[in-house]
């Protein structure tokens, strides 16, 4: 298996890890809102760099999440390509000028404006991805539910997330065992058969997996009810930590970035930074 393909918690000694889950979640939400609102290249570039700095502060190495990172990069590139495919002159639309670098065919041509527009788009992702990854990788899963409750989400939803984290490894193990047992009956799931047969054969795993997962759900919901889950509107949390100064600082920074993002847009009356005029 590739390293940490499922993006699970990586415990380290760092200030990022020491932030409470609630602070990290709030930071992530504010930060992504800021990045979504603006197309200001300078701000996005600064946010990307800050994100990468935070990543190195967290002592999690990029290569530990290589698989996930490559996957996301492919998605981002596909997205950029799709924008170009469906709207090749979006850059000119936005920036009002047209500097052709390389004409292709029909309405497709590469212009400075298009490249710049796509660069901004890319920066939006690169500003958010490190922070999002940090939230996932540096938050103790035990704190997820508490942190969601901390920003006002119903604890029942928060606990659904926590339970998913708890049971994903079990379901993975079920999947593995079921698939092996089906293969031992002569049902080939390896690369030797045709794709269609393989797809059909995968159904042989699905039904037992769904049924055994349903049985799990019944057990767990009984166990939870028997221990009073859902009794009150609120609940306390064993793992929740009180807010400290660093949490407030993190929140302040995130709010500052959001304010800057909004401020730049309002001040200029446009979400774009235009180097062509």
């Amino acid at each position: 298996m590739s390293k940490n393909a499922a993006l699970s918690y990586l415990p380290r000694q760092s200030v990022v890890h020491r932030l409470t889950g609630t602070a990290k979640l709030a930071f992530f939400l504010l930060w992504s809102t800021a990045a979504m609102l603006t197309y200001d290249t300078r701000l996005l570039a600064a946010m990307t760099i800050t994100g990468l700095v935070l990543f190195s502060v967290s002592r999690i190495r990029l290569r530990e999440v290589k698989g996930a990172l490559i996957f996301m990069m492919i998605l981002v590139l596909l997205n950029l390509f799709a924008i170009f495919l469906f709207s090749p002159d979006q850059g000119t639309h936005v920036y009002g000028t047209k500097h052709v670098i390389l004409p292709l065919f029909w309405r497709y041509e590469i212009t400075q404006e298009t490249l710049f527009y796509l660069l901004n788009f890319f920066l939006k992702y690169s500003a958010v991805i490190p922070v999002a990854l940090l939230f996932i990788l540096a938050t103790n899963p035990s704190e997820f539910a508490a942190s969601l409750a901390g920003i006002g989400v119903s604890y029942k939803i928060g606990y659904a997330v926590a339970l998913a984290l708890r049971y994903i490894p079990d379901v993975q193990r079920d999947f593995h065992n079921i698939s092996q047992a089906q293969q031992a009956r002569g049902i080939d799931l390896s690369g030797k058969d045709k794709a269609f047969t393989r797809l059909k054969n995968s159904a042989a795993i699905l039904l037992p997996l769904v049924l055994s997962s349903l049985a799990r759900i019944e057990t767990i919901s009984n166990a939870m009810e028997l221990r009073g889950f859902g009794k009150h509107k609120k609940r306390s949390w064993y793992v929740q930590r009180p807010f400290e100064r660093r949490d407030w600082v993190a929140l302040a920074i995130a709010l500052g970035v959001l304010a800057l993002s909004l401020g730049l847009t309002l001040a200029k009356g446009s979400r774009y930074f235009n180097p062509f005029q």
Binding site: R166, N222, A223, G230
Partner: peptide, 18 residues
């Protein structure tokens, strides 16, 4: 199947949290 928490301590605390 009835182990709800992510760790031993959280599981023991579950009823208290509720």
């Amino acid at each position: 199947g009835q182990f709800i928490g992510l760790t031993v301590a959280e599981d023991i605390a579950f009823a208290l949290e509720n």
